[in-house]
Structures are given as structure tokens and as C-alpha cells.
Design a protein around this nucleic acid. Structure first.
Lengths: 147, 147
DNA sequence: TTTAAAGTTGACAAAAATACTCTGCTATGA
DNA sequence: TCATAGCAGAGTATTTTTGTCAACTTTAAA
């Protein structure tokens, strides 16, 4: 069980936007270079993010993308839902008929528990949290270096 | 993010063994018919489960598989670890060099949190729990039917 | 108003992972 | 001794993922 690159790249890209929040828009090109992600591929991801209303695009020269909402109001779960689709550990959570009846209840309950656990974590962590973690991490690193 | 059929089928099959614990071994054929899973495919999964020590095989006529340990000592996480590999939301949890340095700490911490959450849930639920859930679910269903 | 930067769209394709399938064994209990 | 059932590994088909590309539209700045 792992995230696809869509989710991973998407979170990284959104993290860049969060770091830059309040400043000028970031172009796809800039982000793709910073994160070493294919420019074309990233374009696709931002298409989804834009449609979902998580980012706003600013066209024209010096354009790019900015977060639609402040980092404190965007959770990692929001991003993953858009790029990975809502988590469905097993399709039988929604589609009951797929399950053979015998073990239906037991495994279904299990998948739901796992899903809820992941959702709980991802939807409780915001981009702001990540930025804060990142900044305090940098401070610690600086101290360790004796700076 | 979803489990592959390996994990899903594996848990279902192990659940069957748990339901039958203490009785005669179940053959691949029996399980594959009960769960409507390809017999050949299931054989592969049981190969992995056997190597990992989760099940014991009994060869010869009337042979099959049984759980190596009682259902109360087998967690869903044990099964998923074997069949899906340990959860790695992102490879950068282990392989540090894959990450571009800038956002290294922040996203890494995130993946770890998600992973730990899933592990915590799956390793806290045993096959016995599932069997109990299943049985009490059946009782409730019977009551609802007015039986 | 021209132009270049930047976003938008959708088709396409390579590559990897997944999900089986099949064949031919070997072991074992009835 | 033979039917049953596990064991092992090669092979294949399908799906998903990941990434590429080309053509077009919009917009800001010169």
C-alpha cells in the first residue's frame, strides 16, 4: 500500500505554494525545477487541483499558481482526495454487491477502520503544520551545526 | 491509495481459516470456491503466507492449510505485511537520497505519520476480533429478521 | 498592439505493477 | 498405488501509472 506519485508530487508542490504563500505566484516551471518533477506531468496535477478549487491560476506573464485558501485551511487529505481519489482500501466499502456474503461484514468493517484512520490523520494535518514543522526543523539543524 | 487484491484476498482467506480454527484443514480449492478467488492465484498467496510462518500446510489427501497460531495472535497487519510488503507511503522514508533537500523534512515526517497510523490500526486488529465482529453481526441480523 | 510567457486541453505511449494462468512436478494419507 | 493436494516457477494479459507532446488560448508587459 503506497501513494502514487500523483499524491506525493502534489503534496510537495502544494507545500511549495504554502511556503511561498502571500508572495508572487509560482509557475509550473519553477516548481518543476525545484522539485525535479516533469513540467508536463505537473501541469496535469495542477489541472486537477485547480478544478477542485485548491489553487488559483494567474495567467499571463509572471503568472503561475497560488493557494486558494491560506495554508492553515488546506489539509493534506484535501490534496490526496483530489489526486489519489478518496481512499478506498477495498471497493466493497461502497459497492456492496462485489462481496461474497459469507465474510461480507467482517472484512468490510476492517477496511472501513483502516480508511477512517488514514483519513483522520491526513485531514488533521494542514499545510501550515507542515511549514511549521519544516521551519522548526531548520532551526534545529542550524543549532546542531553550531550556527 | 488502496490495497491490492493480494492483501484483500489474503485477509479474506485467513479469515476463513480463523473461522475454521480447531477443525480440519481447508484446501485451497475450498477457500477459492467460498471466496470466489482463482485457485492458482490463491496458491501463490498461500506460498508467501507459509514462508512467513503464518499458516501451516498439511499435504496429502484431505490436506490443506491451517493457521500456525491461534486467531487471537494473528493481526491483520501481519498478513498485509507479508502480502503487500511493509507499508511505504513514500520510498523516501527509507531512502533519504531520493528527496530533494528543500522539502525533505516536512513531507518525510508526513509520510511517516500516515504509515504509523495505518500500522497502528492493522496491527491492533486480530483475526479473532474479526471473527467476533462477524459473529455478533450475525446475531444482530438474526434479531432484525425477528428470529 | 504585438509578443512572449504561461496556462489549458486532450491525445498518446512507454513502462511498471498487478492479477492471474498454466504446466509439471513432489509429497502424503487413505 | 493412486488420488489429492501442496510446491515452484515460468509465462501472459490487463490495468494503472507515469510521463510526453502538440496545438491552442489567455493575459501582462513592453
Amino acid at each position: 500500500m503506497k501513494l502514487s506519485t500523483r499524491g506525493r508530487y502534489g503534496v510537495k508542490a502544494m507545500f511549495e505554494l504554502a511556503l511561498n504563500y502571500g508572495n508572487e505566484p509560482l509557475s509550473i516551471k519553477t516548481i518543476s525545477e525545484k522539485q525535479n518533477i516533469s513540467e508536463y506531468y505537473l501541469e496535469q496535477l495542477f489541472g486537477s487541483l485547480r478544478k477542485a478549487g485548491l489553487v488559483k491560476s494567474i495567467r499571463g506573464a509572471q503568472g503561475g499558481y497560488v493557494l486558494s485558501r491560506p495554508p492553515s485551511e488546506v489539509t493534506v487529505g484535501d490534496i490526496l482526495d483530489v489526486l489519489e481519489g478518496p481512499i478506498e482500501i477495498s471497493e466493497c466499502i461502497d459497492d456492496e454487491d462485489n462481496c461474497s456474503r459469507i465474510e461480507y461484514c467482517a472484512t468490510r468493517l476492517l477496511w472501513i477502520k483502516i480508511r477512517d484512520s488514514v483519513n483522520q490523520v491526513t485531514h488533521s494535518i494542514t499545510l501550515e503544520d507542515m511549514v511549521n514543522d519544516y521551519k522548526s526543523m531548520n532551526i534545529i539543524t542550524s543549532i546542531k551545526r553550531g550556527e
